[in-house]
């Protein structure tokens, strides 16, 4: 990396709490320009929390999140507003606005952030709908779409401003294998065609191995492995292998603690 161009995403020693509970225990991560970084982990690993911090939706206890060279928790609201125009987010459930048609949903960022005329915005929205293979569906309401179509529409809305950073939360969760692999291909195509830096949060191994340049494995609020697909596959750590081979972790038995939990005196 050239020194004058910082990594688009830099996280340093991110510590976060949910109430009193410690969720992330000092996570540091760099995502390089134009790469697809997959953040993997089981339920409760802290990956969703991590994503919310990357998006600036939560405030960390300590640590720094820098997007495109700017500390998102330190910059003013106007700078944050400008920064957010350069990032797109596809949420897990799509988060399409149910009172607007698919086309209106996709056009919303353009409407709010640009002064383009209606016709231009429609053309731009249709362009993105072609990219995600949803052409011709702009008049449907979100409730009329299938699960796969909702994820596609959410992706189209996320990329309508041609962002430099794209975040996808579980893009293929809950979809059948064919649809899910077509979404994976779509993400690869987006990176190749538009040169975006993409962060994907998922627990689907197959999809992670297919799209990732690098994988970051989170477990219990810590990064336990970080590397290319092959490095992760061959990772020596037992916790990583457990996750990859879908083994449940052996629980160390503590008779006293077990008894305390049962009696509710823990």
């Amino acid at each position: 990396m050239s020194p004058d161009r910082p990594n688009p995403i830099e996280v340093r020693d991110l510590v976060t709490h949910y109430g009193d509970r410690l969720i992330l225990k000092g996570v540091s991560l760099d995502v390089r320009e134009g790469e697809i970084m997959v953040i993997m982990g089981g339920s409760g690993s802290g990956k969703s929390t991590f994503l919310n911090h990357l998006l600036g939706l939560l405030r960390p206890t300590s640590g720094v999140v820098r997007l495109l060279g700017q500390d998102i928790n330190a910059i003013g609201p106007l700078d944050l507003f400008d920064l957010r125009k350069k990032m797109g987010v596809a949420f897990q459930g799509g988060a399409l606005f149910s009172s607007m048609s698919v086309g209106e949903n996709i056009m919303l960022p353009l409407r709010e952030h640009t002064n383009l005329d209606e016709k231009t915005m429609q053309i731009m929205a249709r362009l993105k709908m072609e990219v995600v293979e949803l052409a011709g569906f702009e008049h449907l309401m979100p409730a009329e779409l299938s699960g796969g179509m909702i994820k596609r529409a959410a992706l189209a809305r996320a990329i309508v401003m041609d962002p430099r950073l794209l975040f996808c939360d579980e893009p293929s969760a809950g979809l059948d294998p064919v649809v899910s692999s077509s979404i994976d291909e779509l993400i690869l195509r987006l990176r190749d065609a538009m040169g975006m830096t993409i962060v994907v949060v998922t627990h689907e191994l197959e999809s992670a191995f297919k799209i990732a340049d690098r994988i970051c494995v989170l477990d219990k609020g810590e990064i336990i492995a970080l590397g290319s697909v092959d490095e992760i596959r061959a990772h020596p750590s037992e916790r990583v292998q457990n996750l990859l081979n879908r083994r449940t972790e052996d629980v160390t038995l503590d008779a006293d603690a077990y008894l305390r939990r049962l009696t509710g005196e823990g």
Binding site: L55, L57, R84, F91, Q92, A95, S99, E112, H113
Partner: peptide, 20 residues
């Protein structure tokens, strides 16, 4: 009801990350 549903469906989060 509308705001509550939007909140649960992450639509409010979506607005915020869109800079709205």
């Amino acid at each position: 009801a509308r705001l509550g549903t939007m909140h649960i469906n992450q639509e409010v989060d979506a607005l915020r990350v869109m800079g709205i």
